[in-house]
Design a binder for these strands. Structure first.
Lengths: 346, 346
DNA sequence: CTGAAAGCGCTAACAA
DNA sequence: TTGTTAGCGCTTTCAG
């Protein structure tokens, strides 16, 4: 079964391939009559452009590559969904790659995307330093936007949320709910998300005079299991904090679950917060207070940046996320105000 | 910045492009000396094949398209992850498309994948009948495997689990735990998964003499919210079942959550089961007893089928899933035995 | 407004 | 073993 080409259409319409191309790609001058003739011939034959040939010809594939640390993390899933949706509307296709939180796999996938001549790459780097080389080399070759996470020592566009501002809201909210001491549970400091969030946590906690003990900074992994383990560790300590701030919702889900298992009441005895607002956050027991990441907006900005062929000026777009108050915190009755920075492009 | 081509390498090595191609693609006879010379030239220049040109030349792109109803459903996410992993190991790339549970979007995405000359397509059809036309038309043009769900009236390969056998295990387990009546909560009957599971449920319930009232068959959506609503509906009825069998874990999560809200104890008053064994199943309160879907295996089989250029014989591969017993059922102490069919290819 | 022809980068006959 | 060359399907000058 031979795939129908532009030549077949040309033959049937009794014209040249050039004319067919002009009609079907919509550019170039054509008479109405000719337009109709060609179009109906194409219709009859069930012609579809061969995007490979077109891509070879004009050097653009209409595809975008996306690399995430782990697609099974609902936050990244949500990001992927948003990106895919935006691209779909522009008639572009998405190459999805899962780096399995491994900088080496990530580097291989990036190289393979370059080899495939994608028009641009969206990457949420797996590692805060080890991802650097591959990301930079890729960015030197084609448009690249980092999403959510950021690798030190790279010069590329970035879109994400303002973690510092987010943590300010979190701490203020907990403080309003009566917390005077707090623990932080996150991943190892191998990615910018945890780094930023911990730094924002420390800063605002200090500002508001909250107690933060060294042994209350628990860093390991973005998993439910780690959240559960962390509570076990906290429970053996001499003192227990008024609040546990988690670097993402998976951890927070583990924390609330473990608290229940340990007979520690949330939010009465300890307030707990998450980050990301994944779809399962509200399923926590109690439902999680968390920071909502505007994934649709992040995706839209990222795709927009990729398209912007423009100059060498790099854009770092930090969106200010909003706190979603549910039942895992006491919070006072008013929504947190917080003097959140204006954000936006800078 | 001009991308380095095979001609550049040829010039630098002082040979023809054909030789370079032979060396770099590994096929065709080349002397060792020539091999080294060309390779080092390629190395120096940082040459990378242009996969687009290669694809145009030999009619294969090394890409596979995948279309799922909703990537935010953790079950499909897991399937995508598995497929992506298998493909990555073969040096292939994955085009991911989210159909948003809409047969029209799905049809468009399928067409676009065909236009992109993917080597094959893996699709979990959104709709049991409306997806038919597009799926069949696509399958007529290139290798296509249906995953998990199946569209009526199509002639394609399929890989999934044996829903009937799964339901047999579920019912037997519930029965062993003392259930003598049961409700079923699923999606509308617009996809084969729910159809099959409901049918398996009905059959085995009848076999074991369980009571199933008409108003206990509740069909709407694969969401947590629907699970919650369904319990509300059941609670208003004259009688309440001993068990609630859910068509997927999201629904089951909603069901257990609503039971808690209604003060109905699980599993003491009502046993609940899910389906899929998504990563959040164990986070239910209580942790869900559910049917584990071997996504890695399903993915591996699907990719294998795509590669099998072979004859016209269609393969329907039904893997027999296993029950994962957790705390939402009483279950008796022994694992369910069940005379599950041998399964495998048929 | 339409046609002829070159060429994107690569591979595979065919020749040498 | 290596080189020459045609051609994958498309778009786009350049002529007419």
């Amino acid at each position: 079964m031979h795939r129908v080409t532009i030549a077949d259409v040309a033959a049937r319409a009794g014209v040249s391939t050039a004319t067919v191309s002009r009609v079907l790609s919509g550019r170039g001058p054509v008479s109405d009559a000719m337009g109709r003739r060609v179009r109906s011939a194409a219709e009859d034959l069930g012609y579809q452009v061969n995007t490979i040939a077109r891509a070879l010809r004009d050097g653009r594939t209409g595809t975008v590559g996306m690399v995430v640390p782990s697609i099974t993390n609902p936050f990244f899933t949500s990001l992927v969904e948003s990106v895919e949706h935006v691209l779909g509307q522009e008639g572009k296709e998405l190459f999805l790659c899962d780096a399995r939180s491994d900088a080496e796999i990530e580097a291989r996938r990036l190289a393979s995307l370059v080899a495939r001549n994608v028009d641009g790459i969206i990457v949420s780097p797996s590692h805060g330093t080890e991802s650097g080389r591959a990301v930079q080399e890729t960015a030197d070759r084609l448009p690249l936007v980092q999403l959510d996470r950021f690798v030190g020592g790279t010069e590329t566009d970035w879109v994400g949320v303002d973690d510092i501002a987010a943590m300010r809201q979190v701490i203020d909210h907990l403080h309003a709910g009566g917390a005077r001491s707090a623990a932080f549970v996150g991943s190892r400091l191998t990615n910018s998300s945890t780094e930023q969030r911990l730094s924002g946590f420390r800063r605002r906690a200090a500002d508001t005079g909250m107690t933060v003990r060294d042994e209350w900074i628990l860093l390991d992994d973005y998993t439910v299991e780690w959240g559960e383990d962390a509570v076990a560790q906290l429970a053996t300590g001499a003192a227990f904090p008024d609040a546990i701030v988690c670097a993402d919702d998976l951890i927070a889900l583990g924390v609330t679950r473990a608290c229940r298992a340990h007979g520690i009441s949330v939010p009465a005895e300890v307030q707990v917060t998450g980050f990301d607002n994944i779809q399962f956050a509200r399923l926590g027991e109690p439902a999680l207070t968390t920071v909502d990441q505007p994934t649709d907006q992040i995706a839209a900005e990222a795709v927009r940046l990729l398209g912007a062929v423009g100059g060498t000026s790099r854009a770092h777009i930090a969106l200010v996320p909003k706190l979603v108050v549910r039942d895992s915190t006491r919070g006072g009755d008013s929504a947190p105000k917080g003097d959140s920075a204006p954000g936006g492009e800078r």
